[in-house]
Design a protein around this nucleic acid. Sequence first.
RNA 1: GGAGAGGUGGCUGAGCGGUUGAAAGCGGCGGUCUUGAAAACCGUUGAGGGGGUGACCCCUCCCAGGGUUCGAAUCCCUGCCUCUCCGCCA
Length: 423
Amino acid sequence: MLDPKLLRNQPHEVAERLAIRGFDLDLVKLEKLEAQRKELQIQMQDLQNERNQRAKNIGQAKAQGHDIQPLLDEVEGLKIKLEEIETHFSTVEDELNSYYQTLPNLPHETVPHGSSEKDNVEIRRWGEPRQFNFPIKDHVELGERNNLMDFATATKLTGSRFVVLNGKLARLHRALIQFMLDLHIAEHGYQEVYVPYMVNQASLFGTGQLPKFTEDLFKVEGEQGYHLIPTAEVPVTNIARDTIIEAKDLPKKYTCHTPCFRSEAGSYGRDTRGMIRQHQFEKVELVQFVRPEDSYKAHEELTKHAETVLQKLGLPYRVVALCGGDIGFCSAKTYDIEVWLPSQNCYREISSCSNFETYQARRMQARWRNPETGKPELLHTLNGSGVAVGRALVAIMENFQDEAGQIHIPEVLQPYMGSSKLL
RNA sequence: GGAGAGGUGGCUGAGCGGUUGAAAGCGGCGGUCUUGAAAACCGUUGAGGGGGUGACCCCUCCCAGGGUUCGAAUCCCUGCCUCUCCGCCA
């Protein structure tokens, strides 16, 4: 959520910055609701004050043994009047809050302008896409060898957009997870966490999936309103919900492996072949809680941590800064890391690294105690994939295939594969 | 699943329906003392919000949501969560 004070005091500046992402702030609506809110709140608080005073007087009179009936007569009607205005106030407040919740985050000043994916700006490249001197296969074809990858069975078990992995490919998939976690723990200073794969609605609100993006989620049957997590970002970031972290404990850096579940509503017909876009996939996530002044430095570092995974695996990639029109709802700035996929002859997203500044923190009241002011203040949250496991598996298969259709295992994964070099 | 107990400030923990936003202790911060530190002592210390140029004034919050009352942390109902015992169990 945006800072209500900022919206109140500098609505035109907010509108300008939101326009960068193609969002149209309704200033007329905002000003109207805000004026109502202010008037009603003043009236309500005056009446509450009167009630408190009168109740206190009655208490004192009673303690002194006076007849309180005249005082009781005086307050008659006050309660009903107050209730009416309280109801009216909360109606206006709810309307204002609902509108606030539809407002995306303000883009950072370094975010490139533009309306779509095409306007994203490439920041850097690493590695050279390999030149093949034989006809290449895509990961589906490669996976069909020895029945390593089985979509038909997954469809039987569940439906479309699921996969069964067999034998050494299943092991390679697991090896990737272990490798990534070990790297982030040992070399990048993250703490590993294990978290629930179902979360409540408060958590989904905190990270911004609710109320707006409910159609992207799988909801679990039952009264609790639990949902399967679409990313570890949700449970891990919500660790900080309703807490005040001591300054000495910042930054907090968590890494976490979870499955992710996405309904992929609205992506019909896209990436239908293979395991690029699945309802269930594994991801190793990086999450940081940092002091506000450190967040952009942390954002660069976190992105590097994700890049290191690809470098160690030897996978060519590029980093792009998302433009205003392509950036996520909650994000102030996002870098996507895109890995080279030979079969598609292009770079495809394998990680998305974002700085949310206080947007998520305000929703979930995630705070730290600033030693300079002594006060709890909103911290900055960041996250990034470090990296998506299924897509990394696809990239390894396609980039490291040979003419015989065998897959050469990257050196860093061999210890996790019983020293095998080939798949 | 059955039976009981409980949810109060960063933590522990008091709190007859009426100056209790909340005792006390711990922790934190400031100070005295000390070469420095510890100890001791003194002081201070919840969060969110509204109004006003300002000194300042006011509102809300004792798990959540309802209710009773002139007045609720305190009474009633519902939900959620935690703990103990029994049963079952990966």
